[in-house]
Design a binder for these strands. Structure first.
Length: 152
DNA sequence: GCCAACGTTGGC
DNA sequence: GCCAACGTTGGC
């Protein structure tokens, strides 16, 4: 089982939204690195941190599990959809998504500012300047360390 | 295949 | 709202 971190803007879709709907397709990702991870590496049962970006206190807000491994993101096929991509062909899909399931919301956000101060996390793309990857792997060591920062 | 222009991300 | 960093696009 692998660990991940996935970013979302809470104004668009936040942890409270996931808690309400329980399971949600993580669609609209239009970045090849993130696509490759969803398509090739994420497996059902993997765990992921839910990260709030572009908001007042960016940081990790909870945990979800991967409910379904990578499958084609058909929002790319719909000309009416926000994430429409005319270059994605249903016979050869360019974009993929996974389904995520709500597991837990932390009592307190673990702010990015705090994560940045931890030498244990210095290798995470998340804390590196200018990194915009919206999905990234988390090592078991990093996962355990971050879990130790929560108040459960 | 280079690279300038452009668009997007996302912290601040 | 600003802007640095980065990915993508497209002309050549």
């Amino acid at each position: 089982m692998a660990y991940w971190l996935m970013k979302s803007e809470p104004d668009v879709f936040g942890i409270d939204d996931l808690k309400r709907v329980k399971v949600e397709p993580w669609d609209g990702v239009r970045n090849y690195q993130a696509r490759n991870m969803m398509r090739d590496e994420m497996k059902k049962g993997d765990q992921a941190f839910f990260y709030h970006s572009n908001c007042e206190v960016p940081g990790i807000v909870g945990i979800m599990t991967i409910a379904r491994a990578g499958y084609p993101d058909d929002t790319a096929f719909d000309p009416e959809a926000k994430y429409y991509d005319p270059k994605s062909d249903p016979d050869n899909p360019r974009w993929y998504r996974v389904d995520v399931r709500f597991k837990r919301k932390f009592r307190k956000v673990i702010p990015l500012s705090e994560l940045k101060t931890c030498p244990e996390l210095a290798d995470m793309p998340l804390v590196r300047k200018g990194n915009r990857l919206s999905i990234m792997p988390v090592t078991p060591e990093q996962w355990q360390f971050i879990m130790g920062l929560t108040d459960k």
